[in-house]
Structures are given as C-alpha cells and as structure tokens.
Amino acid sequence: MLATQRTRRTREHTGPTPHSVAIRAKMPSSKLPEHLLLERRRQEDLREEAILITKYNKKFDLKNDWERTTDRMIQKNTVKRRVKDIMEQRKLELDERRQRLRELLSLEEEEYVQEMEAKHETLEERQKKMTERAKLLKEKRETERKAFVQNKLDQQWREQCEELRGVLSRRHQDEVCIDRMQQLAVKSDLERRKQEEEAMYAELWEKDRLAKAAREERESQQQIERNRAMVDTLRTQKASLEAKKLEEKR
C-alpha cells in the first residue's frame, strides 16, 4: 500500500543545511485571468468601433465629395445658363437696334430721294433764276450807289453851309446840356434817396434804442420787485420761526 502511494507534489524543497527551504516558481496557468479577458474584449470592441468609425468617415467623406462636386456642377451649369440667356438677350437687342437702324436708313434714303426729286430743276428754270438773281444784284448795287452819292452830297452841303453848321452846333450843345441836366437830376435824386434812407435807418436805430432801454428798465424794475418779494418772504419766514421758538420756550 505504501509502495503504491503517490508522492505528493509540493513547491517546497529542503536545502543542504537545516531550516533551508527553497520554493519553486509557480508555472503559469494556461488559462488567462478574467480581467485580461475583459481587457482584450474591450480592446477588440474598440478596434471594431474604430474600424466602423473609419468606414463611416470614409463613406461620409465620399458623400460630401459627391455633394460638393454636384453643387459645383449645378452652379457651373446655372452660370452657363445665365450667360447663355444674357448673350441671347443681348443678341436680340442688337438685332432690334440693327433693324431700327436699317429702317431709319431706309426712311432717310427715301426722304433724300424725294428731296432731290423736288429740287430737280430744268435748264430753263435754272437760267430764269440766275437772270432774276443778277437783276436783283444789279438793282441793289444801283440803290447803294445812289445812297452813297446822296450821302456825300448832303455832307458837302452841310460843310459848305455856315448857317446849317451853326444850327447843328447849337443842337449838339443843347443835347449836351440836356444830358448834363439829366445827369445832375439823377445824381440829386440819388443823393436825396440816400439821405432819406440814412434818416430812416437813424429813426429805426433810435426806436430800437428806446425800445431796448424801455425793456431793460422793465426788466430791472421786475428784478427789483422780485428781490423785494423774496426779502419779504424771508422776513415772514424768519418771524414765523422766531415766534415758533418763543412758543416752544413757553
């Protein structure tokens, strides 16, 4: 029975000297502790979550890129449409202006043709007009010549006639005197008006001075009355206070 009994395994081993004992190191367990399992599981969960977040971010970035690209395309197409509309509108306006110009040119051309047709003259009409014009010019020159001769004759007669020169001289002197008298009258009238204006301004200034003096006198009198009323009020209050003090002393 003793032979078949198994030896008990222990970590303690006696040494060569008394009371010397050695402890053998404990073999690591093949099973992981629970907290390590939980930590590993947490790390795996975090890794999976990070992978999911990365995938989501990539998907979100792709979506944003697609939306930005789409927005740029929409904006670009919108700008193209607007530019196209503006160019078409300008082309229509240009065509309208060209059409109006063509109509104006056509109208002016028709008016010019009608005017030229109206001004078209025959050779006989032109010769007749030239003859009439030459006749008018001849008559005009003859009239001017006669007027010049008559003027010279009148001048010669005035210079040779002593009595007429005296009359003309006296007439000139009379005109000069009349002009001088008119100038003096105008000057006198201006001087009179100036004196009247100065008198009017002096009167207005005097009235203003008197009104100002009267106003200052009234204001001074009113101030004196206000001061007097204030003194009377103070005296009344003082008398009332003194009477009250005497009443309290009793």
Rank of each mutant, 00 (worst) to 15 (best):
E125V: 09
D45V: 09
T4W: 10
E121N: 03
R6P: 08
K129G: 01
R98M: 11
R8L: 14
E12T: 10
R81T: 13
T54D: 14
K138D: 03
H35I: 14
E121Q: 12
E34C: 02
R171C: 06
R193T: 08
Q195F: 12
D61R: 00
R133C: 13
E144M: 12
E203I: 11
M181V: 15
R24V: 08
R218W: 04
S169W: 01
L123A: 01
P28K: 03
E88S: 02
H35G: 11
E49M: 11
M1D: 13
E198N: 12
R72S: 05
M130E: 14
N64F: 05
T122D: 04
L168A: 14
T122H: 02
E163S: 03
A25T: 07
D95C: 12
K31E: 14
E196K: 10
K135P: 01
M116R: 14
R158H: 01
R141P: 00
P18I: 10
R102C: 06
Y112T: 14
A118I: 05
Q160A: 15
E139G: 00
E108A: 10
R126L: 05
E103Q: 09
T122S: 03
N64L: 12
M230E: 13
D208R: 13
N64P: 00
K152D: 04
L234A: 08
E162Y: 02
E206F: 00
K84Y: 02
K59P: 07
K129F: 04
K59F: 13
M230S: 09
Q222G: 01
T143P: 00
K187C: 04
K91R: 11
V167A: 08
M73S: 13
S169C: 11
F148E: 15
E203L: 12
L234S: 06
K249P: 00
M130A: 13
R41M: 08
W157F: 08
N64H: 13
R170W: 05
A229T: 02
L164C: 02
L101K: 12
S169G: 01
H35D: 14
L101N: 08
E217P: 00
L105A: 08
P28W: 02
R100D: 10
E225T: 07
M181W: 04
F148K: 15
R40I: 13
C177Y: 05
L136P: 00
K244W: 01
K138A: 05
D179V: 11
R24T: 13
K140P: 00
A243F: 03
K80A: 14
R126N: 01
L46E: 11
R24M: 06
I74G: 02
